[in-house]
Simulated assay, not measured.
Amino acid sequence: MAVNGINGTNGVAHRSSSRVVKPGIYAPIPTFFKPGSEDLDISPFEAHVVRLAKAGVNPLLAGSMGEGHHLTHRERTTLIRAARRVLDAEGLTEVPIIAGTGAGSTRETVELCKEAAAAGADSAIVIASGYFAGVLAGHKQALKAFWREVSQESPIPVIIYNYPGAAGGIDLDSEIITELACECPNLSGVKLTCGNVGKLTRICATISDPSFESLYPRKNPKAPFLVLGGFTDFLVPSAFANAHGAITGLANVAPATIARLFQLAEASVSDRSVLPEAQRLQGIVARGDFTIAKAGISGTKFLLEKLYGYGGLPRKPLPPIDADVAQALWEHPDTIALVKVERELSGKLQS
């Protein structure tokens, strides 16, 4: 495998061409903390990364679900190294790692991209800071300049993270995203946590056109520009729009189910005989996504505790989920239906 030099200052070689983000399902992995101290709890983190990877779901570290905003630079790189180490130890050497590298300034974002690459990340995902959203939200050129400079300076490909809820309401439209994709060869995708299916369709109309690759080649030819949803409630429609999968918090709770839905959605584009099953599973997943997403990070961690025996609390000042709300979430028909399917599918994987 080719080695494209040494990144960062710690002498770690990063094989930037060996692993790339491909179409599929990615989960923003929660960061687990030790009770009381709130220090990183690496053991359940490693177990969870492996559990998901074996189910066909790839990791995104230090994202919104991973409380990246609450992590120091050192903690972010600790998580990346731990994930790479445990994946390799399990023989999952080709599983790529996406790392959240969003920060307040362009300068710090670039710094985080370089640190992530040196630690073993294969791609970065970058959100605009919402602190000065009042200035940035309506300033198209400033927003484009941010991702242009970050992608130019990053040693690994960069994914645009469009999440208005975590960026002070900054919501990139399809025009800005498409222009960035055409103008910045080290951009390798977008995650649309805005949940806008029309926007996804418009972007795919350009990105997935056969001419795009030749007109706008990527810096790394093996890392194409991917259009990824931020939820799983529209995986089937997005497959028919020629999108490339999703980065979704729900895959932490039901990895085998989400991976199976993606497979069915992709297959149904050319084989209509599997479309009814894809639509059936899509309905279960869409209802589960709607219900569980509202419970946020603390709700996801609660469900992981119930299902797998680890989860814990978010880092302060995020509050834990209220006990009554947690019980209602666990007993909700949408959660019950999703957990039932997940247990059935994960049992087949293990048998």
Rank of each mutant, 00 (worst) to 15 (best):
V3W: 10
G5R: 10
I6Q: 12
N7I: 15
V12S: 11
A13M: 14
A13K: 05
S16P: 01
S18M: 09
S18A: 14
V20W: 00
V20G: 02
V21M: 00
G24F: 05
G24P: 04
Y26Q: 05
F32G: 13
S37T: 15
D39E: 15
D41Y: 03
I42P: 02
P44M: 09
H48I: 10
H48P: 11
L52R: 06
A53D: 05
V57S: 11
V57F: 05
P59W: 00
P59Q: 00
A62G: 06
G66M: 11
G68M: 08
G68V: 08
H70Y: 08
H70R: 12
T72N: 11
R74S: 04
R74L: 03
T77M: 12
I80R: 09
I80K: 08
A82H: 00
V86H: 01
L87D: 14
L87V: 09
I97V: 12
S105Q: 04
T106V: 15
R107H: 10
V110N: 04
E111D: 13
L112I: 03
K114G: 02
A116E: 01
A119W: 03
G120C: 02
A124R: 04
I125C: 00
G130M: 14
G130H: 11
L136I: 08
L136P: 07
A137Q: 13
K144R: 10
A145Q: 08
A145V: 01
W147Y: 15
E149S: 02
E149M: 03
V150K: 00
V150Y: 01
V150E: 02
Y161E: 01
N162G: 12
Y163K: 05
S174P: 02
E175P: 00
I176C: 02
I176M: 07
E179H: 03
L180Q: 03
C182Q: 14
E183R: 14
L187C: 03
V190H: 00
T193G: 08
T193K: 13
N196C: 09
N196I: 05
L200K: 02
T201E: 09
T201Y: 11
T201I: 04
P210L: 13
F212I: 06
L215R: 09
R218V: 01
R218M: 02
K222A: 12
A223C: 03
F225A: 01
L228Q: 13
G229Y: 10
G230P: 05
F231C: 02
P237K: 09
F240G: 08
N242R: 15
A243Q: 08
G245L: 10
V253M: 11
Q263R: 12
L264R: 14
L264E: 09
A265K: 11
S268T: 10
V269R: 04
R272S: 14
S273L: 10
P276L: 01
P276V: 06
Q279E: 03
Q279R: 02
R280Q: 07
Q282T: 05
I284V: 15
V285Q: 09
V285L: 13
D289Y: 13
A295Y: 15
A295M: 08
G296V: 14
K301T: 10
F302W: 07
F302Q: 14
E305I: 02
E305C: 08
L307F: 08
G309M: 11
Y310V: 07
P314C: 14
P317Q: 00
P319Q: 12
D322K: 15
A326C: 06
E331S: 15
E331Y: 07
P333K: 07
T335I: 12
V339Q: 13
K340L: 10
K340E: 15
V341R: 06
G347C: 05
Q350L: 15
Q350V: 10
